[in-house]
Design a protein around this nucleic acid. Structure first.
Length: 656
DNA sequence: GCACCTCGAGTTCA
DNA sequence: CTCGAGGTGC
């Protein structure tokens, strides 16, 4: 079919031009006409459909859920700088490591990160960023995006990272369309793009007019980032045309100034500028922090500020009794949503910012989500009332306390209804007992009806099934669902229960650390202050909180009730084999070993509850020394720290 | 005793 | 996200 091939070639050429030239040689109307003709032809001759036909990109597959994808190269996030000084500091730190640094400055597209995996030049898999290690498989949807080629110009195996976004124009069209159909509107192009990519039905994604820029080649063989980008263009990948190679940080600053001004003229939204060291071979030398690479950063444009009236300051009570002042605002639209509340954190925050009731205040959205009061417009101040911290709990009336050295005030009443409800909400929450279907509203209702007061009452709800079914808004189906999930939660591993109990200062992470060393609640109950205090990352205050918790008769009674209800008290995860010689001891490894890998030593020690640290200090317990040890060995000798040579190590490992 | 980092607690709206 | 507190290292 000669004509079919002609059209396919034309359309592919057009797609390419559309994203690389300002004035493509084919008009929108002509493109649509050709597409129509092609669809008719392909219907007529389904056997002759060409593999690189653009119609093959319009998916129609509906899937049940997204598969998880483990990124074979981690997808890191970037650190942020918010002004010129911070940027110069970023540059200074890099120039301490390497001189004559060149940067690549790129527009930071406000969209959604994506990882593309090509095999033999064909798009094999596309995944979201997720937590950086595990993302979601969105291949079926990404195939519908015109600017992401299904086939590259060379048959290579390659992983490429980029950003999927929606143009300002498409966003407007989409929202106008949704308005007509009375559908909820998207807040901004980024949410629209993210929502569209996460469609189970890819024909919906196809209709959304998504676009993409690719900007990163993680395992590049090239010496510089700029060369990688050039190569990506050769492959047919769409790279943003406004990328600039900068000789030094001053050129980066120039670039930022230019785009701060031109920002609104772009057809898509940007929220800053990304700056990367051009020389890829220096990345390891410059290094990484725990979270982000040190060889790149994002300059973020200042967030949008809006002014509104602060009508009142009210107070909420958390599960710990912590009192939090909240600003009641004249509702105002900011970045797509209407805000009427914002946290004021504590008394100091309010006094430092000199916030008074009836003031006009500037609001921004921190991380584009959480509203935050930035400052007061003193020029508009009139008829204001001073802020006065309350002295009694707004719910139960108990006199508040302000522990020495604390900024926050607390309601000390263990039976405060507000606290009780918050404790129950925490107990069922996702990282705690994870009881789905038992949401905040329902907890509140059940508490007020008197069905639940203590944690264990949740497990006794099944005895009241007949009554619950009669409640307004509940039916047999919803009640059954809740009761099923309550039953399921009984078998949770100990760390969830420990976290759910809500001991002060014991969050999800600490609960897990503790559970590994005291793998049942009974063992924890019988632990001593010293044993707890010895655990790494658990100090005297948390140890005391735990001891106090288990010394309280009410708590013991409640734990017995939970046990009676059949709630699991055991830790089900990987346990530590407690061993005096290893548990909570700090090890440092130096030199090399021919009979074992470092990873194996590390696993051996960590299985017994020991820790590996990188440098020797007076807190190091044991230094393991192999062949050709480094400075760490000298440090160990100086500080008189126990040393295990390869012979001792072999004995300990049971190899001799 | 101070500087650093990690963690916990509370947080908005649809 | 932001804040303060707690833990640890120097």
């Amino acid at each position: 079919m000669q004509r079919m091939k002609e059209i396919v070639d034309l359309l592919n050429k057009y797609n390419y031009e559309y994203y690389t030239l300002d004035n493509p040689s084919v008009s929108d109307a002509e493109y649509d006409r050709l597409m129509q003709e092609l669809i008719v032809l392909e219907k007529k001759y389904p056997n002759d459909v060409l593999p690189d036909s653009p119609t093959q990109k319009i998916g129609g597959k509906i899937i049940d859920e997204f598969d998880k994808v483990v990124h074979n190269v981690g997808m890191f996030s970037l650190g942020n700088v918010f002004n010129e000084e911070e940027l110069i500091e970023f540059d200074n730190k890099i120039r301490k490591v390497i001189n004559n640094v060149e940067y690549v400055a790129e527009l930071k597209i406000d969209g959604m990160g994506v990882s593309l995996e090509y095999k033999n030049g064909l798009l094999f898999r596309a995944a979201t960023r997720g937590d950086g290690t595990v993302g979601e498989d969105i291949t079926h949807n990404v195939k519908t995006i015109k600017s992401i080629p299904i086939k590259l110009n060379e048959p290579v195996d390659i992983v490429i990272r980029g950003e999927i976004f929606m143009s300002k124009k498409s966003f407007e069209t989409l929202n106008n369309d949704r308005k007509e159909k009375d559908l909820p509107l998207f807040q901004n192009p980024r949410n629209a793009a993210a929502g569209s990519v996460r469609q189970l039905d890819s024909s919906v994604t196809a209709s959304r007019n998504l676009d993409a820029f690719l900007y990163h080649y993680p395992l590049t063989p090239f010496k510089t980032h700029y060369e990688s980008l050039e190569y990506m263009k050769e492959l047919g990948l769409k790279v943003n045309p406004n990328i600039r190679l900068c000789k030094d940080i001053n050129e980066v600053i120039e670039y930022i100034k230019k785009w701060t001004e031109l920002r609104d003229t772009l057809p898509y939204e940007i929220d800053g500028v990304v700056i990367k060291v051009n020389d890829v071979t220096k990345y390891d030398e410059i290094g990484y922090t725990a979270k982000v690479p040190k060889w790149a950063t994002a300059y973020k444009f200042p967030a949008q500020l809006v002014m509104t009236k602060l009508k009142d300051i009210i107070f909420t009570v958390g599960r710990t009794g912590m009192i939090t002042p909240n600003a009641v605002l004249e509702p105002i639209k900011i970045m797509g949503s209407t805000v009427s509340r914002a946290t004021l954190h504590n008394e100091d925050f309010i006094l430092n910012k000199d916030i008074k009731i009836n003031d006009y205040v500037y609001i921004k959205k921190a991380g584009d989500v959480i509203p935050e009061v930035v400052s007061v417009e003193l020029k508009r101040r009139e008829d204001v009332k001073p802020f006065v911290m309350i002295e009694n709990c707004p719910i139960c009336g108990e006199k508040l306390i302000n522990p020495k050295g604390f900024v926050d005030y607390f309601c000390p009443n263990d039976n405060c209804p507000a606290r009780n409800i918050e404790k129950l909400i925490h107990f069922v929450s996702r990282d705690a007992m994870n009881i789905e279907g038992l949401g905040e509203r329902i907890i509140e209702d059940f508490y007020n009806y008197g069905y639940i007061k203590d944690f264990s009452d949740i497990y006794k709800l099944k005895d009241k099934k007949e009554e619950l079914v009669e409640l307004e808004g509940f039916g047999l189906k919803s009640v059954n669902n809740i009761l099923d999930n309550i039953e399921l939660s009984k078998s949770n591993s100990m760390e969830r229960l420990l976290f759910a109990l809500g001991i002060n200062g014991i969050g999800a992470k600490k609960a897990k650390i503790i559970s590994k060393q005291f793998p049942s609640l009974e063992l924890l109950e019988n632990s001593s202050f010293d044993e707890l205090n010895n655990i790494k990352d658990i100090g005297p205050i948390l140890s005391k909180n735990i001891i106090d918790y288990f010394s309280d008769d009410d708590n013991i009674r409640e734990l017995n009730e939970l046990k009676k209800c059949g709630v699991n008290f055991e830790y089900r995860g990987k346990k530590i084999l407690i061993d005096e010689e290893y548990t909570n001891k700090r090890f440092v490894i130096t030199g090399s070993f021919d009979f074992i890998t470092r990873k194996e030593i590390k696993d051996f020690i960590e299985d017994k509850g020991g820790f590996i640290s990188e440098s020797v200090s007076k807190n190091t317990d044991i230094v393991i020394v192999g062949k050709d040890p480094g400075k760490k060995y000298d440090d160990a000798l100086k500080l008189n720290i126990e040393i295990w040579d390869d012979k001792i190590l072999k004995e300990k490992l049971g190899l001799m």
